[in-house]
């Protein structure tokens, strides 16, 4: 079976890979590009652990064919922090103890950042519905919601001109 050659942008870097026509973008990110921060919890779009940004929108990478990535712009958890500078949502997750096992955390952080990038002042209900596609089995969501609300408040303050 012939492989497809795909060129794409991942976290700002141009990346090339070969993939079979049936491989998902999640498979390629994890197995070909060694970016294992994006997790597989279900492979059917029901848990959100594999959430990435595709052309600026958050999607489940298990529900994207790898070949679709040709010429697209991909963002993963590995690109959320700028160097060693954590994104506010990453910091508030730590401050609020919003992770226990940490397996769902990358998906939550990518999704939460996507929310805050478009809505800097979400209500608790908006946060809960935005994150409904991300399953967490450890925390009961309480501290995750607080961390996202707190990051939103911090970002609003940053964005307000002095």
């Amino acid at each position: 079976m012939s492989k497809l050659h795909v060129t794409t942008s991942v976290n700002g870097d141009e990346r090339e890979f070969l993939c079979g026509p049936g491989e998902t973008l999640l498979d390629v990110l994890r197995d070909e590009l060694d970016m294992t921060g994006t997790k597989e919890g279900c492979g059917s779009g029901d848990c959100g652990a594999c959430t990435i940004m595709l052309d600026g929108e958050m999607v489940c990478s298990c529900l994207v064919m790898a070949a679709e990535a040709q010429g697209r712009v991909i963002g993963t958890i590995e690109g959320v922090a700028e160097g060693s500078e954590l994104h506010p949502v990453q910091r508030t997750f730590l401050d609020h103890a919003a992770l226990q096992c940490g397996f769902c955390t990358p998906g939550f952080i990518v999704a939460a950042k996507a929310l805050l990038d478009r809505n800097p002042d979400p209500t608790e209900t908006e946060v809960r519905y935005w994150l409904a596609g991300n399953l967490c089995r450890c925390t009961g969501y309480d501290k995750i919601i607080r961390a996202v609300m707190d990051a939103a408040a911090e970002l609003r303050q940053e964005r307000t001109p002095a």
Partner: peptide, 9 residues
């Protein structure tokens, strides 16, 4: 339908 992630697709 589904989640935000799903509806984006």
């Amino acid at each position: 339908i589904g989640s935000v992630q799903v509806r984006n697709r």
